[in-house]
Design a protein around this nucleic acid. Structure first.
Lengths: 192, 192
DNA sequence: CTCGATTGTCTAGCGGTGCTAGAATTCGAG
DNA sequence: CTCGAATTCTAGCACCGCTAGACAATCGAG
């Protein structure tokens, strides 16, 4: 059944191509520009092919989100590993998070702003999402402070970072004091 | 020129009707359901009438956002006035903010999630937006702590609230520990 | 009171969207 | 080589934001 295997391989490759192309297009021109027609044209197939891989545009966004979550988790862990001491770890963690959001705005939107049809904060939450949260928690647990649940602390810290990321990128916060805001946040929230 | 005045009054009334109807429809069924066709039908005029009041859908969203900002500023000031002591003031301020976001999700989206074509964090930022920020700042300035710029502190606090509001509503944070997260945030950020 | 000009509003339509039914094609199995 | 199944495409649906141009209502001048 080698023929069937080859077909499955090719099919999987095409699915990756769709996700990669959607991401590329979104980073280039924003998610509004990611239409099924344009996406189909870029992968050199017709529109209905997309629907043989995904239920719809929402699922494609979801696939990009999962890819992004995995990358973010890797980036966060690498950053935390490279820093010495709790405070330094939290600072680079926060900076890495905000960097990721700024450098991959479309991916960040797919993860947290758009509807990718993904379940959050539940048992059936996809592994990459849980893992990205876990990556935050690993570093933040040690600065949660006595008597504070590490999970709840991580939620608050994450929410703060998310707020800074989205408001800054939308131009709702002036870009100039970004570093000052980050340090203030870490100094106040983290118990070192 | 009483005729002309009457006409202008009626025109202004119709504009308010458009904004109110858009808001209503958005709260009922989400902004995706606010199409120019549906909106036109609800106000019992044809689509082009909308474009004689607003440049496009974006501007209608912006109008709802400004209305919301004014209401939020009022709510925040009323809440702060009713509380005794800096810490209590900050707690009710935060709770009022999150309450507003939860009770008026469509308006909140218009203000901070969607593109209403409004300028933020600039000189030509519309007054209601500046004023809502000012309402936050009035209460938060007294807990910014020594040597911390009140404006920057308010930005950070606001971003944190915004993160909690959006992540909670999108189901990205479990609803159950909402109050715990709020108190943790206030206890850590505010210097009392 | 009539009539032309000005406003105001509507109908109809443009190019775009996500998505899909059914025709056409490709391709491996016998 | 033929046939049937799997795959891909063409063509189209209902909807979107937005607008040109036809039409109707209203007003001021004579």
């Amino acid at each position: 059944m080698s023929v069937q295997e080859r077909k499955e391989r090719e099919r999987a490759a095409r699915e990756r191509l769709i996700v990669a192309t959607a991401r590329e297009l979104a980073e280039e021109q924003g998610w509004d520009a990611v239409t099924t027609r344009r996406l189909a044209e870029r992968i050199e197939y017709s529109q209905p092919v997309l629907y043989s891989h995904f239920r719809g545009k929402r699922e494609i966004i979801g696939a990009v989100a999962l890819e992004g979550a995995a990358e973010m988790a890797t980036a966060l862990r690498a950053a935390a590993r490279a820093a010495d001491g709790p405070r330094a770890r939290v600072v680079v963690l926060a900076r890495t998070y905000l960097d990721f959001a700024e450098r991959n705005p479309a991916v960040y939107d797919a993860m947290f702003q758009l509807d990718g049809g993904l379940a959050f904060a539940r048992e059936d939450t996809p592994a990459p999402l849980k893992d990205a949260f876990a990556a935050l928690l690993e570093t933040l647990a040690e600065v949660a402070g006595d008597g504070v649940h590490p999970g709840v602390f991580t939620e608050v810290f994450w929410a703060s970072l998310h707020g800074l990321a989205t408001l800054t990128r939308a131009g709702r916060l002036p870009a100039e004091y970004a570093e000052g805001r980050l340090e203030l946040l870490v100094d106040r929230l983290a118990v070192v």
